[in-house]
Computed example of a mutant assay.
Amino acid sequence: MLVNSKAIVLRTIKYSDSTLIVDAYTEQGGRRGFLVRIPKTRKASVKNVLFSPMAILNIEWNEHGTSKLTRIKAVQPANIYSDIPFSPAKMAITMFLAEFLSASLRAPMPDRNIFNFIFTSLQWLDNEKGNCANFHIVFLVHLSTYLGLEPNIENCSKTSYFDMENGCFTPFRPATPHAIEPHEARHLPLIMRLKFTTASRIPFTRAQRTRILQAITEYYSIHIPDFPTLKSPEILHELFS
Score class of each variant (00 low, 15 high):
T70M: 12
T70S: 15
T70H: 13
T70R: 14
I72P: 01
I72W: 06
I72H: 05
I72N: 03
I72A: 09
K73A: 09
A74E: 13
A74P: 00
Q76S: 10
P77W: 07
P77Q: 07
A78R: 01
A78F: 07
I80H: 06
I80A: 06
I80F: 02
Y81A: 05
S82D: 14
S82N: 14
D83T: 15
D83V: 14
I84Y: 01
I84T: 05
P85T: 12
P85R: 13
P85C: 12
F86D: 07
S87A: 06
P88I: 07
P88Q: 08
P88K: 09
A89T: 15
A89H: 15
A89F: 10
A89N: 15
K90S: 05
K90Q: 05
M91I: 13
A92D: 03
A92I: 05
A92W: 03
I93D: 01
I93R: 04
I93M: 13
I93C: 11
T94Q: 01
F96Y: 15
F96A: 06
F96E: 04
L97N: 00
L97A: 01
L97V: 04
L97G: 00
E99W: 11
F100L: 11
F100G: 03
F100C: 04
L101D: 00
L101C: 04
L101I: 02
S102P: 01
S102I: 00
S102N: 11
A103V: 03
S104D: 07
L105H: 00
L105Y: 00
L105A: 03
R106Y: 02
R106S: 07
R106A: 02
R106C: 03
R106G: 00
A107V: 10
P108N: 05
M109C: 03
M109Q: 15
R112H: 13
R112V: 09
R112M: 11
R112G: 12
F115H: 02
N116P: 04
N116C: 06
N116T: 14
N116R: 10
N116K: 09
F117W: 05
F117Y: 15
I118A: 05
I118W: 02
I118R: 04
F119M: 05
F119E: 09
S121N: 09
Q123A: 11
Q123S: 08
W124S: 07
L125N: 04
D126H: 02
D126V: 03
D126Y: 03
N127H: 12
G130P: 04
G130I: 02
N131Q: 15
N131R: 15
C132V: 15
C132D: 10
A133M: 12
N134V: 13
N134Y: 10
N134I: 13
F135Q: 12
F135S: 10
H136V: 04
H136I: 08
H136W: 08
I137W: 10
I137Q: 08
I137T: 13
V138Y: 10
V138M: 08
F139M: 05
V141Q: 11
